[in-house]
């Protein structure tokens, strides 16, 4: 389990200063829009993958701390990975928010969300951006 102080720091850092939050206007990128139907979270993710490898992931939109930080962290995690490796990371993330045993090492900073499952009403916030990233991986993997 990650220390609470560290988790807070990670989340606030990725919320206040996201590494990957920007709109991409580049035709080589594919994009997926994902919005919550029950809250305001509204995220578009942009991905560039070549030869089965993710070169770059960016996102933009409106999101709460959980939505913004989880999306930003996952962008960091999957960048530079093979599509299959990226898929595996996302699967570990889903296991974590589903309160199932998961591989902590695979998730690095995303471990900050290891107690999100306790807040049933916020799990959606923590998966909106992730689902968009997953959709893009599947799109490239077709």
């Amino acid at each position: 389990m990650m220390d609470k102080e560290i988790k807070r720091e990670i989340m606030l850092d990725h919320y206040n200063h996201p590494n990957n939050k920007q709109t991409v206007n580049d035709e080589r990128y594919k994009s997926v829009h994902n919005a919550s139907d029950s809250c305001i979270d509204d995220i578009t993710v942009f991905m560039l993958a070549e030869d089965g490898k993710i070169k770059d992931v960016k996102f933009d939109g409106i999101g709460c701390t959980i939505c913004t930080a989880s999306t930003d962290i996952m962008c960091d995690l999957v960048t530079g990975k093979d599509l299959s490796e990226a898929k595996a990371i996302i699967n570990e993330y889903y296991k974590m928010v589903d309160e199932k045993p998961f591989d902590e090492d695979a998730l690095e900073e995303a471990n900050a969300f290891d107690t999100l499952y306790q807040q049933a009403n916020r799990i959606k916030c923590g998966t909106i951006g992730i689902r968009a990233i997953e959709d893009l991986i599947n799109e490239y993997d077709k």
């Binding site: 606030l12 919320y15 701390t65 999100l116 916020r122």
Partner: peptide, 10 residues
């Protein structure tokens, strides 16, 4: 505060 809000999910 934002910190307290984040803490509520930790």
């Amino acid at each position: 505060t934002l910190e307290k809000c984040v803490d509520s999910i930790l």
